[in-house]
Design a protein around this nucleic acid. Structure first.
Lengths: 159, 159
DNA sequence: GGGATAAACTTGACTCTGCAAGCAATTCTA
DNA sequence: TAGAATTGCTTGCAGAGTCAAGTTTATCCC
C-alpha cells in the first residue's frame, strides 16, 4: 500500500501542491470579489470574457467552452447577471437559436472596479512571491498540462 | 483599460494557466473516481487522509483544515461516507465534544481501488507530460505560493 | 465553584452546479 | 422539399457546498 503513504511520485506531489495553491488563491479571490464587488469568480470571468470580445458580446455556447461551466450553468449565471443589470440578452439575426450575452455599461464599470481587486490579489499572492523568470517557467510548465479547452478532445478514460 | 486586455502581467498569465490546468485535471479525476468508484474527489481525499492518520482516525476539525471544506461540509460528507459504510464515528474519551472519523475495512479497500485510478490519471495527465526535473521545478515553485493550510494566518484583505 | 468564553460539531435554509430531458431553429440528406 | 439529425439554449431535479445559528462540552478567570 505504498500508494497511500506520503512518499508519492513527483507527479502526485506536484498535483497536491497545485490543488492547495489553487484552493488558497481561489478562495481569497472569491472572498475579495464577493465582499467588495458582489461577484463570484465565475461571474467576474464572464464579464471579463465579454469585455474582451468583439462588440462586448458572446454566444452562450462560446462562454460555456471558455469557462469552466456547463451550458446550463451559463444560462443560470447569465440570468443572475441579467437580474443585476450587468449583462443583457441580444438576438442573433442570422441564427435565431443563438442568444448573445452583451455587457452593459453597468457591467463594464463593475468589471473595471472588480478587476483592480482581482489584479491586486493575484499580484500579492502570486506576483510578489515569485521572480519574473519563475513566473515564466511556471506558465510554460502549466501550458504543457491539459487545459479546459482541450477537455473535449482529450481521450482520457479509455485505457 | 489595459487590465481588460490579454496582455496581462506574468502573474495573471500564470494564474490563468493554473486555473485551466486545475480544472481540466480535477474534472477528469472526478469523472474517473465517480464513474469507477462512486467517490468524489473530496471523498477520496478524506479516505486518503484517514488512511494515513494514526489509527486510521482523525477529528472532524482536523479534516476540515486539511481539506478544502468547511466544518459543515465535513459533517455532511462524513454522513454520506457513513451511510456508504466507508467510515464510522468514534467518540473521544478525553473530550466528548470531538467525534472521530474512522476508516472501515470497506473504506480501506475502496480507497485502494480508487487510488489506482487516481494515480493513473495523475500519471497520464501530469507525469507523462513533464520530465522529472520539470516536475521538481513545478513543485518547488508551487510551494512558494499560498496553500490552504496557511489560509488562516495569511493576512490578505486588510490592505 | 460558577459564570463567561471558547471549541467541536450539527442543522436548516440557501446557492451554485451538473445531468438528463426537452424545445425550437438550422442543416443535412435523400 | 420532407424527414432526420444536429445545434443552441432552457428547465426540473438532485447533489454538494456554504453561512449563520444552535447545542453540548471544555476551559478560563474571578
Amino acid at each position: 500500500m505504498q500508494h497511500l503513504t506520503t512518499q508519492a511520485t513527483n507527479a502526485k506531489q506536484s498535483w497536491a501542491r497545485l490543488v492547495r495553491a489553487y484552493a488558497a488563491i481561489a478562495r481569497e479571490l472569491d472572498a475579495r470579489l464577493s465582499s467588495e464587488h458582489d461577484l463570484t469568480i465565475n461571474e467576474y470571468e464572464v464579464l471579463l470574457l465579454l469585455a474582451r470580445a468583439e462588440g462586448s458580446r458572446l454566444r452562450r455556447i462560446d462562454l460555456a467552452t471558455q469557462l469552466i461551466l456547463s451550458p446550463s450553468g451559463i444560462t443560470r449565471m447569465l440570468d443572475r447577471l441579467g437580474d443585476a443589470g450587468l449583462v443583457e440578452k441580444a438576438e442573433c439575426a442570422s441564427d435565431r437559436r443563438v442568444t448573445y450575452a452583451v455587457l452593459t455599461e453597468d457591467g463594464m464599470s463593475r468589471l473595471k472596479a472588480a478587476g483592480r481587486s482581482h489584479d491586486a490579489v493575484i499580484e500579492q499572492l502570486v506576483g510578489a512571491r515569485l521572480a519574473k523568470p519563475e513566473l515564466k517557467t511556471l506558465t510554460e510548465i502549466l501550458e504543457r498540462l491539459p487545459s479546459v479547452e482541450d477537455d473535449a478532445e482529450c481521450s482520457i478514460g479509455d485505457d
